[in-house]
Write a protein that binds this DNA or RNA. Structure first.
Length: 828
DNA sequence: CTGTAATA
C-alpha cells in the first residue's frame, strides 16, 4: 500500500484562547500577529502559548476567541498558527457570562451586578440584550449609565456578528463577508446602504452584477446616478482588464453602459442620463477625459507619468557621463577577451548606444542575443566606470548595487540572473510591492545608475509608471524586449508604443543565434509572425512536427511524445511542455500530472508520496517555486528537485515535510507551504518567455481558444532550440494565428510622445559582420533623439482634460455618428 | 484567462 499522507484525513484544527499581546497589526489590511494563551485546542502542541497569524481586526485582551486554521513553520520565527477563521467565543455557561460581564471590558460592572443580570436573563443574557436593548430594564438596581455601558460594549464587541448576519442576508458568503467587513469595519452597513456600488472598487471579487443586485434590494434602481456611474467604471475596467485598453471612446462607452444597465434591470436608460453621469464623474475625478476618450484615472495618470518621465530622461541625455567610441571599443575588447566571446557589430552598437543614452530600447526576435548584449553591457559599464561586479563588496559597505536587473515575471528574472551572474529580481520586488497597498502608494526610489528591464513587452501601463516614477534623476534605463512576443496581462502595450513613437534610441538585433543553421523552427516562426500558416506545417522536418490529435487525446499524445524523447536519450530537464492555461483536461495541471506518471511513476505504490490537494509529490520531481522566500534564499522562478519526503511520525514537529534542493540549497516545506511550489514538467507560456529549451512540446486544443493568439503561439514556438513538437487541432492553431490584439489595444502613449507628427528619424543602416551566420540580414539602428523633439512634450496645459459641462457635446452619443439613432445600438 | 506581491 502506498504510504499516502493524505491531507483530507486531518481534522480541522482549532485554538480557543485569549490574546496576551499583539506583536504586529497592520491597520490597512488587518494582517495581525498575536501571542495567544491557549485554553483549549486539538493541536499536537504542548506549550501554553502560541503565535497566531492571519487577517483579523484588533482583538481584545481578556476575551476568548476561537481560531481555526493550520500550523505552519516560519523560517525565522518558528511554529505559528495560521488563522483561516476566527470568532469571538460568547460564554455559554452562567459562570462564563458572569466572568465575562464582570471583566474589565465592562467598567463599573462588578461580580454582584453580573450575577443579578444572569439570574434575571438566564444563559441567553447576552443574546437577549443584543436583540432587545430594553431587556436590561428587567434587571433591578441597574442605573442608566451601567445599562449604556453594557449595551455599548456589547455592540462594539459583538457588532461583527451583527454585520456578518446582515451581509449574509444580503447574499454574501462568509469569506466575502469577512473581506467586506475588513474593508469597512463598523461602518459596513452604513456605507453600503448609502452606496452599494462602492463594493466594486473597494472589494476584490465583487463585480457590477453582484453590487447591482444589492443595489436593487436597497432600492437603487433604474437611472440612479450611482448605478450609472458604477456601470461606467465597470465598462472601463473591464475593457482594461480583458482587452488591454487604456481608454475607450465615449461613443463606445455609452451604448455599452446602456445595454449593461438594461440587461441587469429591465428599465430603459436614456443616453442623456449616462452623459450626465459621465460629466459628473469627470468633475468628481472618478474618470478622466481627453477629447472623446475616457480613461480610468489610474491609467490616465500612468500614461502621462510614463510619457513625462521618458521625455525627462531624453532631455537628460546630455548630462550623462559620456564615453568616446574609442574608450568603449577598448573596454569591449577587454571584456571580449575576459569572457571569451566575440560580439557582432550590431551588438557592439547596442552596447555603445546604451552607454551613451539615458534611455534606450534593445529589441529583436527570440534567440538574437539580447541576453548576450545585456551581459556584455553590464561588464563594459563596470569596466568603464571602474565598478566591481561583486555584490558582496557592496553588501559589506552597505552600498546599493549600481546595476539593477529586473523582469516582469519571476522566471524571466531568474533567467536574467543566471545569464548575467548578477542579482536580478521581479520589477514588483524591486519596487517593494507587498501585494496589499493600493496603487500610487509605493514611493521607493530605485537605487542604481544603470537599470535594465528585460521582457519589457510584458510590462503593463501601471507597472511601467510605477517603475519609471521610482527611478532617480540620473538613471540610465535600458528596455529589452520583443514586441512580437507576449503583451502584458494588464492594460496597455508600453514597449510597442515606445517603439512606435520613434523617440527613443533603439537597436534591433536581427541575426538569430539560438537555433542551428537551417532550422525550420525559425522559418516557421517567421511565417507565424506574419500570420501565415506555412503549407509545410503538417510536414515532419528534421526539427519539428505537428501531430494531429483531438482534444481528449491530446494529453496522452503529449505524454507519448515525452516518453519517446526520453527514449531517444533526452533528459527530462531539456524537455519542456508549454501550455497557455492551468485548468481543463489539457491544462498545465493535468499535463503535469500525466507527465509525472510517466517519468516519475509509482506504479506499484511502494514509493513515498506527499499528497497536497490534487498534486502528488515524489522524490525526483521537478518543481518550480512560485513566491519569494528571502528567509530561505529562494525566489519566484527557482527550479528544483524533490530530494526527500519525511512523514509526520518521523519528525519532531509531527508534520509531514518535503525537501527540495535548489542547486544544493535544500529547503524544507511543510504541508501549509506546499502552495508555494508546483510541478514544473509543464509550465505556462507566459512564464517560459525568456527561457529556451532543447525540446518544446506544445499542445493546441480548442479549450485554449480564449487565450490563443499569434504572439502566444510565436512565443511558445520560439522557445525551442532543437526540436519543436506541436500536437492538437490544426484549425485551432490557424484560429489562434489569425488573432492579433496589436491594433486592438487602445492606448495614447505613442501620441503623448509624438505630439506633432515628426518626420521619421533617420535610420542608420549597419552592416552585420557576423558572416559565420547564414541567416544574417541588415540591422537597423535609429538615430538619437534631437532635444528639440523631446521639448514638444505636452505638459498639463495641453493635456488638460477637455471634458466638462460645456464640452458635453463631445460625449454625446451621436458624436461622429450623424444619422444614427441611439436605438441602433441596441442589439437583438 | 495569463502575471506579480508580504508585514514581527
Amino acid at each position: 500500500m502506498a504510504e499516502n499522507l493524505d491531507l483530507f484525513e486531518v481534522n480541522k484544527l482549532f485554538i480557543l484562547g485569549r490574546p496576551i499581546v499583539s506583536i504586529f497589526h497592520n491597520d490597512s489590511n488587518m494582517y495581525s500577529i498575536v501571542r495567544v494563551k491557549i485554553q483549549e485546542t486539538n493541536l499536537q502542541y504542548n506549550e501554553k502559548e502560541i503565535i497566531v497569524v492571519g487577517y483579523f481586526p484588533k482583538l481584545n485582551d481578556d476575551e476568548l476567541y476561537r481560531f481555526t486554521g493550520t500550523m505552519k513553520s516560519h523560517p525565522k520565527y518558528g511554529l505559528q498558527f495560521q488563522v483561516e477563521t476566527f470568532v469571538k467565543e460568547v460564554p455559554a455557561t452562567e459562570q462564563g457570562i458572569i466572568h465575562y460581564l464582570s471583566s474589565d471590558l465592562f467598567p463599573g460592572i462588578g461580580r454582584k451586578t453580573a450575577e443579578i443580570i444572569v439570574e434575571k436573563l438566564g444563559v441567553d443574557a447576552i443574546k437577549k440584550i443584543m436583540e432587545d436593548p430594553e431587556a436590561l430594564d428587567a434587571v433591578p438596581r441597574l442605573n442608566e449609565e451601567k445599562k449604556m455601558t453594557i449595551k455599548q460594549t456589547l455592540e462594539q464587541n459583538l457588532g461583527l456578528e451583527k454585520i456578518m448576519i446582515q451581509l449574509n442576508d444580503w447574499g454574501f458568503g462568509p469569506q466575502l463577508a469577512m473581506k467586506i467587513y475588513q474593508t469597512y469595519r463598523e461602518e459596513t452597513i452604513h456605507l453600503l446602504t448609502e452606496n452599494p456600488y462602492r463594493l466594486i472598487e473597494d472589494v476584490e471579487g465583487v463585480g457590477f452584477g453582484r453590487a447591482d443586485e444589492l443595489g436593487a434590494r436597497l432600492g437603487i434602481v433604474g437611472a440612479h446616478p450611482d448605478r450609472i456611474k458604477a456601470a461606467v467604471l465597470h465598462v472601463l475596467t473591464d475593457a482594461a482588464l480583458s482587452e488591454g485598453h487604456v481608454f475607450l471612446d465615449a461613443e463606445h462607452v455609452l451604448p455599452h453602459v446602456k445595454t449593461m444597465l438594461e440587461q441587469s434591470q429591465r428599465e430603459e436608460i436614456q443616453y442623456e442620463a449616462i452623459s450626465k453621469a459621465i460629466i459628473e464623474m469627470r468633475e468628481e475625478s472618478k474618470i478622466c477625459g481627453e477629447e472623446t476618450r475616457l480613461y480610468l484615472p489610474s491609467l490616465y495618470y500612468s500614461e502621462i507619468g510614463i510619457a513625462s518621465k521618458i521625455l525627462d530622461l531624453l532631455n537628460h541625455n546630455d548630462k550623462q557621463e559620456r564615453f568616446t567610441k574609442d574608450e568603449i571599443r577598448k573596454a569591449i575588447g577587454e571584456v571580449e577577451e575576459r569572457l571569451e566571446v566575440s560580439y557582432a557589430e550590431t551588438q557592439v552598437k547596442a552596447i555603445e548606444c546604451a552607454l551613451n543614452s539615458s534611455v534606450m530600447i534593445l529589441t529583436g526576435g527570440p534567440g538574437t542575443g539580447k541576453t548576450t548584449v545585456i551581459r556584455g553591457l553590464v561588464e563594459v559599464y563596470a569596466e568603464l566606470h571602474g565598478l566591481s561586479l561583486n555584490p558582496k563588496e557592496y553588501a559589506q559597505k552597505e552600498e546599493p548595487f549600481p546595476i539593477v536587473l529586473a523582469a516582469p515575471t519571476g522566471r524571466a528574472a531568474k533567467r536574467l540572473a543566471e545569464s548575467t551572474e548578477l542579482p536580478a529580481m521581479t520589477i514588483h520586488r524591486l519596487l517593494g510591492f507587498n501585494g496589499q497597498e493600493k496603487e500610487e502608494e509605493t514611493e521607493r526610489e530605485v537605487e542604481g545608475r544603470l537599470i535594465i528591464i528585460d521582457e519589457m513587452s510584458m510590462v503593463d501601463t501601471w507597472l511601467a509608471h510605477q517603475l519609471l516614477k521610482s527611478l532617480g534623476e540620473d538613471a540610465q534605463v535600458v528596455f529589452v524586449g520583443d514586441q512580437d512576443q507576449l503583451p502584458p496581462v494588464g492594460p496597455g502595450q508600453v514597449l510597442k508604443d515606445l517603439l512606435a513613437s520613434k523617440q527613443i534610441p533603439t537597436v534591433e538585433l536581427i541575426d538569430v543565434y539560438r537555433q542551428a543553421e537551417g532550422s525550420t523552427i525559425i522559418e516557421l516562426a517567421h511565417q507565424i509572425k506574419k500570420g501565415n500558416i506555412p503549407n509545410t506545417i503538417a510536414e515532419k522536418t528534421t526539427d519539428r512536427s505537428f501531430i494531429k490529435a483531438s482534444a481528449p487525446q491530446v494529453a496522452s499524445v503529449v505524454t507519448q511524445v515525452v516518453k519517446s524523447a526520453i527514449a531517444k536519450g533526452q533528459s527530462i530537464r531539456d524537455i519542456q511542455v508549454l501550455a497557455p492555461m492551468y485548468k481543463g483536461p489539457a491544462g498545465i495541471d493535468m499535463l503535469n500530472k500525466q507527465i509525472q506518471e510517466l517519468v516519475n511513476p509509482n506504479a506499484d505504490g511502494s514509493r513515498k508520496e506527499l499528497v497536497f490537494g490534487d498534486v502528488v509529490y515524489r522524490i525526483g520531481d521537478k518543481v518550480l517555486q512560485l513566491v519569494n522566500q528571502p528567509e530561505s534564499n529562494i525566489f519566484n522562478g527557482d527550479m528544483g528537485e524533490v530530494v526527500a519526503i519525511i512523514r509526520a511520525k518521523e519528525t519532531v514537529e509531527k508534520q509531514d515535510l518535503l525537501v527540495v534542493s535548489y542547486d544544493g540549497n535544500e529547503v524544507t516545506y511543510q504541508r501549509g507551504d506546499l502552495n508555494q511550489i508546483t510541478l514544473a514538467y509543464c509550465c505556462s507560456i507566459h512564464k517560459s518567455q525568456g527561457s529556451e529549451f532543447q525540446t518544446v512540446i506544445m499542445p493546441i486544443v480548442r479549450s485554449y481558444s480564449k487565450m490563443l493568439r499569434r504572439n502566444l503561439l510565436y512565443t511558445g514556438i520560439t522557445r525551442a532550440k532543437n526540436f519543436l513538437i506541436l500536437c492538437g487541432e490544426p484549425d485551432v492553431f490557424a484560429g489562434g494565428l489569425a488573432k492579433t490584439d496589436d491594433l486592438q489595444r487602445l492606448t495614447s502613449l505613442k501620441a503623448r510622445l509624438n505630439p506633432m507628427e515628426v518626420e521619421d528619424l533617420e535610420i542608420v543602416e549597419v552592416q552585420s559582420d557576423s558572416l559565420k551566420h547564414e541567416n544574417q540580414s541588415e540591422s537597423k539602428i535609429s538615430g538619437e533623439v534631437k532635444e528639440q523633439q523631446a521639448m514638444f512634450y505636452m505638459k498639463g496645459e495641453v493635456l488638460e482634460p477637455v471634458l466638462n459641462a460645456e464640452t458635453a457635446p463631445y460625449i454625446h452619443p451621436l458624436i461622429g455618428m450623424e444619422g444614427v439613432s441611439p436605438y441602433d445600438f441596441q442589439e437583438d
